[in-house]
């Protein structure tokens, strides 16, 4: 998950990212329909009940195994992949970027750190391959997906599990473990969707992960023109941004808090001595909250598809035009813009 040449994905990476996203969203929907069946009963029914969801979860689970192994292999055997390893390691800049982000929020810094890298925080050439968030995302998601794949395979068959663990209860504990492990991923992806969907300059979706870098024209302008700014002040805000980002931000927070509480609730924190999974009291608020979380994931899925629609349009536009109309105004590193996002709605 690391080949972002100057903050851009290669073609293979964009495809991988979309497929991984699709697969993980399906795993989320099915896995948490099981775990939060009190709150997400309708999803469970929609996907064919108990046998339906567990079947879909297994099929997509095998898909995830294939995707993860594909990516690991690719990173190891290709020189592009190998050359990226060092760029994923945490560095002092990442800590600085985190601190500067806090200062930026408090108004004590005027820009975000280059290692925070999203638009509005850097100028050309200053930008590392991965932002500090990006590194965190790569680490957390990689570890999570690997552990989930392994534990998922282990719980594949209940008979096998029971044989492995002697008692049925112990076997079920392992299933619980698998589900709780996924909660981190679940919360992380909600944040990821917010981060890449609600950035004011990229809203409604940051195309970086969808339009391969090989298709984004480079800036040939004169660098003296705007030496001191990131150029963000030249963009205009979308009219709906304030409303939508506020609603979506709130939904993200509620979603994260709810699945977190749900995971504790369904189980008993701190140290669970006795598990009562799914047997907990069903609270209306929690039910609403967890469902809002699922809406956040749904929006993520739509945005991911929309990103691919934009890519297709972008390709068509590149073919049509001699010079792409959207060759960007002054910021080679920013995302390439969206080719006439005219009838966005009709496409999803």
């Amino acid at each position: 998950m690391s080949n972002l040449d100057h903050g851009k994905f290669t073609r293979v990476t964009t495809l991988f990212h979309s497929l991984l996203g699709l697969d993980v969203f399906l795993l989320f929907f099915t896995g948490y329909a099981i775990m939060f069946n009190d709150e997400l009963w309708w999803m469970l029914t929609l996907m064919g009940g108990a046998s339906g969801v567990t079947a879909i979860h297994r099929i997509t689970g095998i898909g995830l195994v294939a995707l993860v192994i594909f990516w690991i292999t690719l990173q190891v055997i290709s020189s592009t992949g190998r050359s990226n390893f060092s760029k994923v390691l945490p560095a002092k800049d990442d800590v600085d970027a985190f601190i500067q982000d806090i200062q930026f929020v408090l108004g004590r810094a005027d820009e975000r750190h280059p290692s925070a890298r999203q638009f509005g925080g850097y100028k050309a050439d200053e930008v590392p391959l991965l932002s500090y968030i990006g590194k965190g995302v790569v680490f957390i998601f990689s570890i999570e997906l690997t552990l989930l794949a392994i534990s998922g395979l282990l719980i594949w068959s209940k008979t096998g599990l029971a044989a492995m663990f002697q008692t049925k209860a112990a076997a079920m504990a392992f299933v619980t473990f698998h589900g709780l492990l996924g909660v981190i991923m679940l919360m992380g992806v909600m944040f990821h969707i917010f981060e890449h969907g609600m950035h004011p300059a990229f809203y409604p979706v940051e195309t970086k992960a969808f339009i391969p870098r090989s298709m984004v024209p480079e800036h040939h302008g004169d660098d003296d023109e705007e030496p001191d700014t990131t150029g963000i002040e030249r963009l205009s805000l979308s009219p709906s941004w304030r409303t939508v980002s506020t609603i979506f931000g709130a939904m993200t927070v509620i979603g994260i808090v709810s699945v977190l509480i749900g995971s504790i609730f369904d189980e008993g924190y701190p140290v669970p001595r006795e598990l009562a999974i799914g047997g907990g009291p069903a609270s209306i608020l929690l039910t609403i909250g967890i469902n809002l979380g699922m809406v956040v994931l749904g929006v993520g899925l739509v945005l991911s598809m929309y990103g691919n629609v934009l890519r297709i349009r972008w390709e068509q536009q590149l073919e049509r035009d001699e010079r792409p109309a959207a060759a960007d105004g002054g910021e080679p590193q920013t995302d390439g813009g969206q080719p006439e996002a005219d009838d966005a709605e009709s496409e999803h």
Binding site: A201, L235, S236, S238, P239, D328, G329, Q338, P339, A341
Partner: peptide
Amino acid sequence: ADGGSPARG
């Protein structure tokens, strides 16, 4: 362009 909003969100 530059990802700046397509005028309509």
